[in-house]
Simulated assay, not measured.
Amino acid sequence: MNEQDYSAATWRLLHDHLVQATPEQRHLYVARSNYGDNGRALAWLADQPDLDRATALMLFWSVGAGWHAQYETIDAVPEYARDTHQLIARVQQRYLAGFYADHGIAFDPGHWDGAGPHEHAPEELQRMPPQMLQAVDGDLAIDPFDEAYSEDYDDGLPMALVEQLYELADAHIAWEAANPSAA
């Protein structure tokens, strides 16, 4: 399975999962996702009006909003970080505009084990809208790190899906080994 087929197959599996995932499952995925290689899925989630607003706020902080707050313009952002910067700006704009749904999930960016404003000095966050620093009230408190030792999830995904992704990775690795000049 060449790189293009591998990428397409993994995206299909992940996309199918995220389309049917509950708000709680999406929240868990955002919290536990490997941000370095899940940009496409996170960007897709950011475009969904049925994404819970608490999850959108978590996504905003998790992909580095605090670090990106230092830049006044996109031109000041290093080239390698521009896609993420634009994602953060899109989530912020939509969050402030009320684009995201309210499924009752609670989230406080300043009081959780992931990235948040608590990692930055106040002067670093001066350009941050106050709403992005405030907790989202909700009746459903999800501790995304409760599952850290669970056998049911890995990287925020159900193990059945993870197994399918591993199978695709194995097929891709086998193809590369059999076709060294094409890899």
Score class of each variant (00 low, 15 high):
residue 1 M to F: 09
residue 2 N to V: 01
residue 2 N to A: 07
residue 5 D to Q: 11
residue 5 D to C: 04
residue 8 A to G: 06
residue 10 T to M: 12
residue 11 W to V: 11
residue 11 W to I: 13
residue 12 R to H: 10
residue 14 L to R: 15
residue 16 D to Q: 10
residue 18 L to Q: 05
residue 18 L to K: 08
residue 20 Q to S: 08
residue 20 Q to R: 12
residue 20 Q to K: 10
residue 22 T to G: 07
residue 22 T to S: 15
residue 22 T to Q: 07
residue 24 E to V: 13
residue 25 Q to H: 12
residue 26 R to K: 15
residue 26 R to I: 06
residue 28 L to G: 09
residue 29 Y to P: 06
residue 29 Y to A: 05
residue 34 N to C: 08
residue 36 G to Y: 13
residue 37 D to Y: 10
residue 37 D to C: 09
residue 38 N to T: 13
residue 41 A to S: 09
residue 41 A to V: 02
residue 41 A to F: 04
residue 42 L to K: 14
residue 42 L to A: 09
residue 42 L to V: 11
residue 46 A to S: 04
residue 46 A to F: 01
residue 48 Q to E: 02
residue 53 R to C: 14
residue 54 A to P: 03
residue 56 A to E: 00
residue 57 L to C: 08
residue 57 L to I: 11
residue 57 L to H: 01
residue 57 L to S: 08
residue 57 L to A: 13
residue 58 M to N: 05
residue 59 L to Y: 01
residue 60 F to Y: 12
residue 61 W to K: 07
residue 62 S to K: 06
residue 62 S to L: 04
residue 62 S to Q: 04
residue 64 G to H: 11
residue 64 G to V: 12
residue 67 W to E: 02
residue 70 Q to Y: 05
residue 76 A to G: 04
residue 76 A to N: 08
residue 78 P to R: 14
residue 82 R to P: 03
residue 82 R to C: 07
residue 83 D to S: 12
residue 84 T to A: 04
residue 85 H to I: 00
residue 86 Q to F: 00
residue 88 I to S: 10
residue 88 I to K: 11
residue 89 A to H: 09
residue 90 R to T: 12
residue 90 R to N: 14
residue 90 R to L: 10
residue 90 R to D: 03
residue 93 Q to R: 15
residue 95 Y to D: 07
residue 95 Y to E: 02
residue 95 Y to Q: 06
residue 97 A to K: 06
residue 98 G to K: 15
residue 98 G to T: 09
residue 101 A to I: 09
residue 101 A to H: 11
residue 102 D to I: 06
residue 105 I to N: 03
residue 106 A to F: 06
residue 106 A to K: 14
residue 108 D to Q: 05
residue 108 D to W: 10
residue 109 P to H: 00
residue 111 H to A: 15
residue 111 H to T: 07
residue 118 H to E: 02
residue 118 H to F: 08
residue 120 H to F: 15
residue 121 A to E: 06
residue 122 P to I: 13
residue 125 L to M: 11
residue 125 L to Q: 02
residue 126 Q to R: 15
residue 127 R to M: 08
residue 129 P to W: 03
residue 129 P to T: 15
residue 130 P to T: 10
residue 131 Q to S: 14
residue 134 Q to I: 03
residue 136 V to P: 04
residue 137 D to G: 12
residue 137 D to E: 13
residue 146 D to Q: 11
residue 149 Y to V: 04
residue 152 D to Y: 05
residue 152 D to H: 09
residue 152 D to R: 12
residue 153 Y to I: 01
residue 154 D to G: 04
residue 154 D to T: 07
residue 154 D to H: 08
residue 155 D to P: 00
residue 155 D to E: 05
residue 155 D to S: 10
residue 156 G to D: 03
residue 156 G to W: 03
residue 158 P to V: 02
residue 159 M to L: 10
residue 161 L to M: 09
residue 165 L to V: 12
residue 165 L to S: 14
residue 166 Y to C: 10
residue 166 Y to P: 00
residue 166 Y to Q: 12
residue 166 Y to V: 11
residue 168 L to R: 03
residue 171 A to F: 10
residue 172 H to G: 08
residue 174 A to E: 03
residue 175 W to V: 00
residue 175 W to C: 01
residue 176 E to K: 05
residue 177 A to D: 02
residue 177 A to Y: 00
residue 179 N to L: 05
residue 181 S to L: 00
residue 183 A to F: 02
